[in-house]
């Protein structure tokens, strides 16, 4: 699905990540952990094409990132759902239109029943006409998750999705991610919340990647 071959990336000439070789397979569940500034968000951005590697090769769904046009990157993002910590909504549109945005930009109309079911799945049935600024942090994260999966993506990337949530809400979001993975979506969650990782490993066969010294390593059994 997504393959990294000896990939390196950095900002302003100094390397942040280097020598990364790994594969994110279909249906897999990975956590990506490491201290702040280690390069977790950079790794995710490399996955969905916001950044291009300075060295090495990234292949997404069989297509080389270096050969992708901007339209190819847009098409890639219709196959990869992304949930950011700060969410990013269109504040002038109600929740249901924000959630349906990936369909809208793809020129497709949202099926009203499916949209209703999706909002019900993330527990936002009562907020369909609410504007994003009026939502709580947990509601925004769940709305971002609903938007990320509305195109039935083959992979979901989540960058610190529980960063602003209490433990109860974090577990609720984790349950949604596990359900999604069981339906066949590959999941990659960047987080520094080790309790969340332990809670996930109790439910699903998740693998943990750790960024250390600019290298991505498989974490040991301590997690």
């Amino acid at each position: 699905m997504i393959e990294f071959q000896n990939v390196a990336h950095g900002y302003g000439g100094s390397p942040l990540l280097s020598g990364m070789t790994l594969t994110l397979a279909p249906g897999s569940f990975h956590f990506l952990t490491g201290p702040s500034g280690a390069g977790k968000s950079t790794f995710l951005k490399l996955c969905y094409g916001e950044l291009t590697p300075v060295a090495g090769r990234i292949s997404a769904f069989g297509q080389d990132r270096a050969e992708m046009s901007r339209d190819d990157v847009a098409r890639l993002r219709r196959r990869i759902g992304v949930v950011h910590q700060d969410c990013q909504f269109l504040d002038h549109l109600p929740l249901e239109e924000n959630v349906a945005l990936p369909l809208t930009v793809a020129g497709r109309a949202a099926d009203a029943t499916e949209l209703k079911e999706l909002l019900s799945w993330v527990g936002l049935s009562g907020q369909v006409r609410s504007l994003p600024p009026s939502l709580s942090g947990g509601e925004r994260q769940r709305a971002a998750l609903a938007r990320a999966v509305i195109m039935s993506p083959e992979m979901l990337l989540a960058d610190e999705p529980t960063g602003n949530l209490d433990w109860e809400m974090s577990l609720r979001l984790l349950t949604l991610l596990v359900e999604l993975n069981r339906m066949g979506t590959a999941i990659l969650v960047a987080t520094h919340d080790l309790n969340l990782i332990r809670a996930a490993k109790a439910q699903v066969a998740a693998r943990v990647l750790r960024i250390k010294g600019g290298q991505v390593q498989m974490a040991g059994a301590e997690l």
Partner: peptide
């Protein structure tokens, strides 16, 4: 700018 970044994030093409 934020609207444009969000649209790109969810798969909007430049021409759209």
């Amino acid at each position: 700018g934020q609207v444009i970044r969000t649209l790109r994030l969810v798969g909007a093409r430049d021409i759209y």
